[in-house]
Design a protein around this nucleic acid. Structure first.
Length: 330
RNA sequence: GGAGGAGUGCCCGAGUGGCUAAAGGGGGCGGACUGUAAAUCCGUUGGCUUCGCCUACAAUGGUUCGAAUCCAUUCUCCUCCA
């Protein structure tokens, strides 16, 4: 949102995420197929990953009904009834033509009882087998499996072992960062990442804040995705090397310095905090554009530096340096 | 000059005797946001020596146990007629 694909590419982003559930409801996956696929439709010729719609089963919970076969839900747009099954999700993602397609899973809410999560994990695994079965074009599209298991280590392990047995090109950790405390999230992540093969991409879904990126990488995660940078941008928050900055704050009214002195992004090269505050408060669309651009740049550059630090064998030093500034005083 | 109508907190605006420091918006201030139903949502917004007191619904005076609400006068604005 608020970004042209060209700008996303200019940031150095290598892949973007789209959502099966939302595109299925609107404009409809048939429309996108007719348009020649998502890449053409949205003018992005790099890789695209599509989420399966599993997360929407969780986030739009009051509108759905889960069964062995799949999920029945009502459209929040027009109230119409639909059913998503693993097969359906695969077919829709095929229509979209994305490069990485995600398994149709159930993301258990936090907190959830052990028995519920156990059932849920087993269902997710059965659904994954059906996804793999239904997924035909393995040349053009890579199907990633999703580990679940809530906050229960034994269920995480079981989930991981079961999905890894299916020998997929990549694996995701789902069901984290759903409202649990950070310590718990890290403890669970610690316990389960190693069950996923090191030679396949390991993707932590829905994460996150800069600190979570470091924590994830440190534990062996390769990929992340998150709405946070663009959403908080639209709501007036910028991520900076000195921590988050709420550009709405009165103290920036006459602050004519850049958002982040160390940032080389378009926004920081050309605009002051006072201007960004002004356009935000005036409800100017450029506010979302400038802040989204900055936040995405910030995360992309942070990840580039993390990769470089790993190559130079100084990840821990870089993490400490980053944290020192990020959590230090503004 | 005549006839009607109106003046409410920073702004708009509800309220026509006690449950009103005064609905609801807006604006201000602060916060939240993590596989996007979000340019969304939440809190707060007269003062103070804050389990209470003070100042407040144009101004002043009055009626009443009690007034933003009723009465009188004054001021200001709007509409129509001359």
């Amino acid at each position: 949102k608020a970004m042209r694909p060209e700008q996303v590419a200019e940031l150095g982003a290598q892949i973007i995420l789209s959502n099966t559930y939302h595109l299925y409801l609107r404009p409809g996956s048939d429309v996108i197929r007719e348009a020649g696929g998502l890449h053409r439709f949205m003018n992005w010729d790099g890789p695209i990953l599509t989420d399966s719609g599993g997360f929407q089963v969780f986030s739009l919970a009051d509108l759905r009904d889960i069964s062995e076969d799949g999920v029945r839900f009502r459209s929040y747009i027009d109230g119409s009834k639909h059913e998503f099954t693993p097969e359906k999700s695969m077919r829709v993602q095929e229509d979209l033509g994305s490069d990485i397609i995600m398994a149709f899973d159930e993301c258990a809410p936090y907190p959830s009882e052990y028995d519920y999560v156990k059932q849920s994990v087993e269902l997710t695994t059965r659904w994954l087998r059906r996804c793999k079965e239904a997924h035909k074009d393995t040349e053009r599209q890579s199907l990633f499996g999703i580990m679940q298991g809530g906050m229960y280590k034994d269920l995480r392990r079981k989930s991981a072992e079961d999905i890894v047995a299916l020998d997929l090109p990549g694996y995701a950790v789902g069901g984290l960062s759903v409202g649990e405390p950070k310590e718990l999230m890290l403890e669970i992540l610690d316990s389960c990442v190693d069950y996923l093969p090191e030679d396949r991409p390991r993707y932590l879904m829905g994460v996150g804040t800069p600190d979570y990126l470091f924590e994830g990488v440190e534990r062996g995660i390769d990929m992340f995705d998150c709405v946070l940078p663009t959403r908080i941008a639209r709501n007036g928050t910028a991520l900076t090397s000195r921590g988050p900055v709420n550009i709405k704050n009165a103290r920036f009214e006459r602050d004519f310095t850049p958002l982040d002195h160390e940032c080389g992004c378009y926004t920081c090269r050309n605009y002051s905090r006072a201007y960004l505050r002004h356009v935000f408060k005036s409800n100017e669309i450029i506010s979302s554009m400038l802040l989204s651009n900055h936040n995405l740049w910030f995360l992309v550059k942070t990840m580039e530096r993390i990769r470089k630090a790993i190559e130079d064998d100084r990840f821990t030093e870089y993490k400490e340096e980053f944290y020192g500034k990020y959590y230090g005083s503004l």
